[in-house]
Nucleic acid binder design. Structure first.
Length: 871
DNA sequence: ATAATCACG
DNA sequence: ACGTACGTGATTATC
């Protein structure tokens, strides 16, 4: 095996880490997030590649030769943020302490150092990995040098790898030609001007054909489009200069001794105190040496005696604020089922030095501890915990109104994260970094301490953001409502579900045979790849490429072909049936519990807009639009002696829009209580109400939907299969009819641009970071988000208020009826027969009066002996 | 693990 | 010249 070297573009990765992580500071106030992120990326790569050598290259921060030479042409390079600048020397110090080779040289950019070293190493037979956030480096890719670009996606960092062949595949040009391509298209992030009016597409085309700008220039009159030809002629000097700027030097005159880059143990004695100072606590565990514990840990007390436990509970009960955590009993549970682990005790914190973990054992049963915990919670002024709904599987808080869930608070403060953990809260709110490996008891103590410590901080932040009422009056009460819904579950007829699945299986089998017959081949119909080949190559249908990996076989593509090819219609039917069987018939069956009911989860911290989400299984996407799918709802039934009452809001989002925009015309339309899409059609198309055609109504409906989604002429044109121009005209007419709506939507975007977020009627925030993107598509997306989120979010808020109200009414009246499902604008109640009329009244009243808007909120209601009947 | 597809509001 | 409707989750194939 060839030896391996990893080369890191220091500033580029620091920069990426800086913008990818929330702000972190250590006790001295030194910002540390970029260093932390850098180390994480580096460690991940080292673990993956296990190289023999490692070198990090930095720019020297004086203007370099290449840049100086063309100083006039180069835009102003943004000064580095101070928070990042101060981390650079510390980063170098850390790397040096870890025994990692750093290279920098005045007059040379990191790119040139990397290029030169990569070239030398490869020449001596090594495999090279270059790590950078900068695509510029792609020109260095060869068969033995791969360029690795870490990307921060939602959820974590992925790394894109490029060997020469990958560059060719993605851009259609060789790494060397990539330089020429850049010279034409330019690169704003790297201050390469390029040739005006030539973009990525044109540049790629020209270079793919002519291979270099020089050759292209020789054939300049043949270049297409003519615009590019003119541009290159006129700006040839710019192209040449850009090429100089874009070319990375691979034969720089540097001293580089490979042995100086050999990788040893990087968790050195010298690095340890540095890591401590930077408070990278979860990395400290990687050092062999044993460090002193965090001061907080000195106050952890693990208790298993009854007498001591009682004292602690008693003192906690009287405390103004208590933080708590459930101790998981992982001992007798295999790791795979760790999430199902039963509680083995509880941790409590009610002061900086009052942190206890009470464990079950010979003296105390877990059950007793948890019962005590519930009682204790009732006494405390504030009971803080992370993940209350989940914790309630183990205990019941004695009171609801003093509970504070730090996870929910963290979600409201930033709803864009993919998950919420107490470790994140500790890091973000308390600047406390935890050791990775912890005993269960210490973990529980930490969690209880963080709950206690972070509560006032989170509450202050909620207050400051204007979300404290939202938190206290909607989100926290909702925790209990959702908990009850999950515990209630919904009854599903297992036998009938199986029958349904069997009937589907028969039809699927039949279709499958017909499809094989007609295509003359047995293949996997479920594989879009194979299907694409059969349809578009073997059978020669026209419908070109659409996805990165090949032909698109999505329904909207196939639907256009179906009228002409019955075969395609069969594929669509097969797909439909296969979906119903796998996701619904078979998929739901596995969730039916011993009690004959499905206890799905309703998640409160998933969506960016404030909606609830449903998983394991998803009960919010049970088919309804097509009759065949809709039949599944017949297996959702009420228990003996009960009936279903289903209530759904009529067009809640449009009504919210009418209210929030204050548009007189739309408000009037709703007060008339007539068919809103017909009214819209009548007004937009200047047609008397009774003469509106079905087509006009359908179009008006699509525009109404489009408005809610953050309209664009493109999107509308796709939806209605009309030209963009026509779509644009519809929109223009619409805004003329409802001028208030245009003002409202424009305001939403303006607010998002100014403040970075939009808000709902109840103060819920949704950040819109995409608006500051330099990418057009991203920015447009941000604009649509800014328009849609206040509407979707306000509707979600209203539904949450209604749910709390409905449940409260049913509980206060001691009713047996119970809430079982929520589907965004719909509630399903399993009503005890004698209570049906009362349930109907409660649902109607609570839902219609959950908010008082300028327009009435209307609720449609149905009863039935299955979800199918009640909808 | 990710992409493609498709179910819902 | 760019390139999309907003918000979700489950399944399947494929890497």
């Amino acid at each position: 095996m060839a030896e391996k070297i990893v080369l890191i573009d220091g500033h580029s990765i620091l920069n990426r880490a800086f913008f990818g992580l929330p702000d972190l500071t250590n006790a001295e106030g030194l910002h540390t997030n970029a260093i932390y992120g850098f180390l994480n990326i580096m460690l991940k790569i080292l673990e993956e590649e296990k190289p023999e050598y490692l070198t990090v290259a930095f720019d020297v921060h004086a203007p370099t030769f290449r840049h100086e030479m063309y100083a006039d042409y180069k835009g102003t390079r943004k000064p580095m943020a101070e928070e990042l600048r101060q981390q650079v020397p510390v980063m170098k110090e850390v790397l040096t302490a870890m025994g990692i080779r750093i290279i920098e040289k005045a007059g040379l950019e990191a790119d040139d150092l990397l290029g030169t070293i990569a070239g030398r190493c490869e020449a001596s037979g090594m495999e090279v990995s270059v790590i950078s956030g900068d695509r510029d480096l792609l020109q260095l890719a060869t068969e033995h040098t791969k360029i690795r670009i870490p990307k921060t996606k939602r959820g974590g960092t992925q790394i894109e790898d490029y060997y020469a062949a990958d560059v060719k595949e993605k851009y259609g040009v060789t790494p060397h030609e990539f330089i020429d391509m850049k010279s034409l298209m330019g690169d704003t992030s790297d201050n390469i001007p390029g040739v005006p009016s030539i973009g990525e597409k044109t540049a790629a085309k020209i270079i793919a054909e002519y291979h270099s700008i020089e050759n292209a220039y020789e054939h300049v009159d043949e270049l297409k489009p003519p615009r590019a030809s003119r541009a290159l002629k006129e700006h040839w000097d710019m192209a040449v200069m850009s090429k100089t700027l874009a070319t990375i030097c691979v034969d720089a005159d540097i001293d580089y001794d490979i042995e100086g880059a050999r990788l040893g143990n990087i968790f050195t004695e010298q690095a340890y105190p540095l890591f401590q100072r930077l408070q990278f606590k979860n990395l400290l565990g990687r050092f062999e040496v044993e460090g002193p514990k965090n001061e907080v840990e000195d106050h952890f007390r693990i208790i298993s005696s009854r007498a001591e436990a009682e004292t602690v509970f008693e003192r906690a009960r009287k405390a103004e604020r208590v933080g708590a955590a459930i101790l998981k009993n992982t001992a007798d549970v295999p790791p795979l089922f760790a999430s199902q682990a039963k509680a083995g005790g509880a941790a409590l914190c009610f002061g900086e030095e009052e942190i206890y973990c009470i464990c079950a054992g010979e003296e105390l049963a877990a059950k007793e501890i948890l019962e005590k915990l519930g009682q204790t919670a009732a006494g405390a002024g504030c009971f803080a915990i992370f993940g209350l709904k989940e914790a309630m599987a183990s205990f019941t808080p004695g009171r609801q109104d003093n509970c504070f869930d730090g996870i929910i608070a963290a979600y409201l403060l930033n709803p864009l994260k993919s998950d919420y953990t107490f470790e994140d809260v500790a890091r973000e709110q308390l600047s406390l970094l935890l050791d990775e490996k912890q005993e269960d008891e210490a973990r529980a103590c930490y969690e209880a301490y963080c709950a206690w410590k972070s509560q006032p901080i989170l509450a202050d932040k909620l207050e400051e953001a204007g979300m404290l009422r939202l938190f206290e009056e909607i989100e926290m009460p909702l925790v209990f409502t959702l908990f009850d819904m999950e515990r209630n579950g919904v009854k599903v007829e297992a036998a009938e579900l199986k029958d349904y699945g069997d009937r589907l299986a028969v039809q699927i089998e039949k279709l499958e045979q017909e499809i094989y017959q007609e295509s003359g081949e047995v293949f996997n119909i479920n594989s879009p790849k194979q299907l694409g080949v059969i349809l578009f190559e073997k059978m020669g249908l026209k419908g070109g490429k659409k996805t990165k990996t090949g032909y698109s076989t999505a329904a909207d593509v196939l639907e256009k072909l179906a009228p002409d090819y019955p075969f395609v219609a069969k594929i669509l039917e097969y797909r439909q049936l296969a979906k119903l069987k796998s996701t619904y018939a078979d998929g739901l069956a596995v969730f039916i519990g011993e009690d004959g009911r499905i206890h799905g989860k309703f998640n409160q911290t998933i969506t960016a807009t404030g909606r609830i989400s449903s998983t394991e299984p998803n009960l919010q996407n049970i088919p309804v639009r097509m009759e065949l799918g809709r039949l599944i709802r017949k297996v959702f039934v009420p228990e003996e002696g009960y009936v279903f009452v289903d209530a759904d809001y009529s067009q809640i989002e449009l009504r919210v829009l009418a209210h929030c925009s204050g548009d007189r015309q739309l408000i009037e339309a709703y007060r008339e209580e007539k068919d809103i899409h017909r009214i819209t059609a009548s007004q937009v198309f200047h047609t008397p109400f009774d003469q509106v055609t079905d087509l006009q109504r359908r179009n008006a409906k699509a525009v109404n939907f489009g408005i809610v989604y953050g309209i664009s002429s493109f999107g509308l044109s796709q939806d209605l299969s009309i030209t963009r121009k026509e779509a644009a005209q519809y929109i223009e007419q619409y805004f003329k009819t409802y001028p208030g709506i245009k003002v409202f939507l424009d305001n939403a975007v303006a607010q998002a641009k100014e403040k970075g977020y939009v808000t709902t009627l109840f103060g819920r925030r949704r950040p819109v970071p995409e608006l500051s993107s330099s990418n057009f598509a991203q920015r447009s997306f941000g604009e649509r988000v800014a328009m849609n989120s206040p509407i979707q979010g306000t509707a979600a808020d209203i539904m949450k208020i209604a749910m709390i109200g409905v449940e409260r009414q049913m509980k206060e009246r001691g009713m047996r009826s119970r809430l079982v499902l929520q589907v965004h604008d719909e509630l399903l109640v399993e009503a005890w027969e004698p209570e049906v009329e009362e349930v109907r009244k409660i649902l109607k009243n609570e839902m219609e009066h959950a908010a008082s808007l300028e327009v009435p909120l209307e609720v449609d209601m149905h009863t039935g002996m299955s979800w199918y009947e009640a909808k």
